[in-house]
Nucleic acid binder design. Structure first.
Lengths: 241, 241
DNA sequence: TCAAAAGTGTTATAGGTACACCCATGT
DNA sequence: ACATGGGTGTACCTATAACACTTTTGA
């Protein structure tokens, strides 16, 4: 692909990892991705361990410099795809961090994005970032490089806000899901317990959560009805608001 | 001051206005400010008319490149101060716009900020940007340069959201104000009428709107009690949330 | 029959909406 | 007295929260 060649060639002009420190860039911008992992009791965040200075050995958010011929969103999508191998990930811009001294080797302004994925069957080793990427509980984060702790705090707050209003669970939990599974998603993300009856009443107002005629199978209790996300209805209602 | 000299010298390396197009920067980042003006029936936005290509003659948001030794927020504060001559303006980062082709002369990623000011007694001519800055109704915007229409739409939406939860009116309406004045602020910003009684009940929940023992004077109707913003109480409640 | 989770119903409270009415002031 | 906006009260409706209860399945 022609574009790839151009991209890679250009990228070397901004390559930060293999050059001596004193020839480091003076001005650059990057994206950083806060990938939340759903699956365990606590919500997780995907971090990579830094193999080089600065902050060697500390944990950091996956990210990259933005290529000169690449939109910001495209850049975030590229990094997320390399990280997760998931094709159709929803992600959202959070905030831009631009303190002069946030990167010790030069001026790097970074645009933060967040996404949430299902950790089940998710193998970070399959991805380019590979061996050094690990999940960490959002409640027990290690020492982080740069201002990445701020970025995570900011992103987590935005994730919580969006959870109440957007179907972030779509693409994370099973395509056909029980209301209890949906409730678990909310409880994990918001770190808060909900009353079953009240939760169902609230979900009932979300017209885009549509019941199917299917039920769970082979469970040692009463099988639950399965629901699914009505994408068309959701998009239609979004447009008119 | 030493810092100023350094800033100005450095800035010339990124100066965009006085250099031939073919020596234009390849990569830069800027801030753009959406200054909302409160005072007339409709909410206004401060725009400047472009005197040079690209988009010569079109209206654009005031903004500037970010100096290499300047934080993003500092940069926005500097531009806003130059624009408004107001010392203690509240402003907030909105979103970062980074499409590759958003600037026809090179790659410029811009970070958008918004602020809201009182237009009364506000004279943009006193400021550096001077003669070409004008207020425009947010409901009737002219043709805009770059992606500035998107930036305004995005900022306006964020302004509306924040109006419900933050005391944006502080510093915009009089320091001691009537509840009707406060209601007018909400009505103008949100472009929506409120019921007097219900509005007052809602305000009653905002503990940081504190009644004083003062009243309006010389009005041809029953004088209204004056209220003021309780900054200490607001900050205390912010910290604990 | 029992455990486990599905699924529904009841009640109390809080907040929002619509609207009516009285009050204090200058002219 | 009257016009004008200040200020308050009521009645209704809806959303939320706490909690109790019935139902259906596999073991």
């Amino acid at each position: 692909m022609a574009k790839t060649n151009k991209t890679l060639r250009r990228r070397n002009e901004y390559q930060i990892y293999d050059v001596p420190i004193d020839s480091f860039f003076e001005l650059a911008f990057s994206i950083d991705c806060v990938v939340f992992g759903y699956g365990k009791k606590d919500l997780q965040v995907l971090l990579t361990q830094r193999g080089a200075e600065p902050y060697k050995g500390l944990w950091a958010l996956p990210g990259d410099l933005v290529y000169p011929d690449e939109d910001l969103d495209t850049s975030a999508g590229r990094v997320l795809k390399a990280l997760t191998s998931l094709p159709d990930l929803n992600f959202e811009q959070v905030h831009t961090f631009g303190a002069v001294d946030r990167h010790p080797l030069g001026r790097v302004v970074t645009v933060a994005y967040y996404a949430i994925v299902n950790m089940k069957g998710f193998n970070p080793k399959a991805a380019f970032w590979a061996d050094k990427a690990k999940w960490h509980s959002v409640k027990n984060l290690p020492k982080l490089a740069f201002d990445h702790r701020d970025i995570i705090d900011y992103s987590y707050k935005k994730l919580k806000e969006s959870t109440m209003t957007k179907p972030l669970w779509n693409g994370v939990i099973e395509e056909k899901f029980t209301l209890t599974q949906l409730q678990s998603f909310f409880e994990t993300v918001l770190d808060k317990k909900f009353d079953k009856g009240n939760f169902r009443k609230k979900i009932d107002l979300f017209q885009y959560v549509k019941e199917t005629e299917e039920f769970e199978k082979d469970v040692p209790y009463r099988p639950s009805r399965l629901f699914k996300f009505d994408k068309k209805l959701y998009q239609k209602n979004e447009e008119s608001s």
